[in-house]
Amino acid sequence: MIKDFLKTLVSNRKSLVGLCLLGFFVLVAAFAPLIAPYEPKIDRLETVAELGEPSLEEEIVSEDYPSDSRDVIVYRSTTTREYEKTVDYFPLRAKPSAEHPLGTNHAGNDLFSQLVWGTRVSLTIGLMTGLFVTALSLTLALLSGYLGGVVDDVITFLTNVMLVIPGLPLMIVVAAYVTMKGTLPIVLILGLTGWPYPTRLLRSQVLTLKGRDFVRVSRSLGERTSFVVFREILPNMISIAMAEFFASSMAAILGEATLEFIGLGNVTVVSWGTILFWAQANGALLSGAWWWFLPPGICIALVGTSFVLINFAIDEISNPRLRKR
């Protein structure tokens, strides 16, 4: 089933474009150290060169000839190597050049390298959050939809409450209280604010499937609940869960960028969001330093596009009416 699904995904033109785009960014993230010319946080290039051959100097400290058959000579040998250390400070706020294809920022960091390394962080946060949200909302949806009763009432109530609270302010408030260390806190913040919508969607799908005859047949044959849930219902939710995964990942990438941009993330991490944060903080937009803020913006937009294209295709696959005649 999953194999069929992936096959269809590849054969659909929209999703193929989306998958290629996403694949490109995944490759960039994976091979960041090879692609990026510099480390993301250095602001200078240090080169050390040795000048000439090492010179050897020997100096006799003492000589002693205790007998005819023995000499004792103490001497000091000093090898002198001469080095030349060049420190090339990266220019601050430089325009794009051969050395810095996308220029440098206020601290002199190479922006192209930051963009490449930032892909790794942004994509990881996005996909991890997507996975987290999908797993969480799928679990909640199955519990609430299949079990019904009080469990359903509680989960539905929580979902509705969360849906009423506007997402961005909530994220900001939570982020303001959490100390940011590494990337895990931001994944948790994005995940814990992102589950309600997918949960509601998946729950209604569970309810539809639960009423289908094949589920009733299964129960009348005497199948265990776990079998009904995991073998009868779950496989029929793959496409919608995949769609939710991509949608949540996209929301997470945007959410991460937003939080970082307004400075509530971990500004010491290099991601597309923090590049934008520093660009804004240093007036890149005012001074028209497009090479600073435009590339991360475009990257965010492209990753978003790839997710949306994949989702279009999933829609087409699971909804035959949208299929091209």
Binding site: M1, R212, D213, F214, S220, G222, E232, P235
Partner: peptide
């Protein structure tokens, strides 16, 4: 349930579309 069995009305809805006939039929 071994004694009492149901046949449902809808031949389309009562077979899980994600399973083969084998995996459907071996369950009982």
């Amino acid at each position: 349930k071994k004694k009492v069995q149901l046949i449902f009305q809808d031949p389309f809805g009562s077979l899980n579309p994600t399973h083969t006939i084998r995996s459907i039929l071996e369950r009982p």
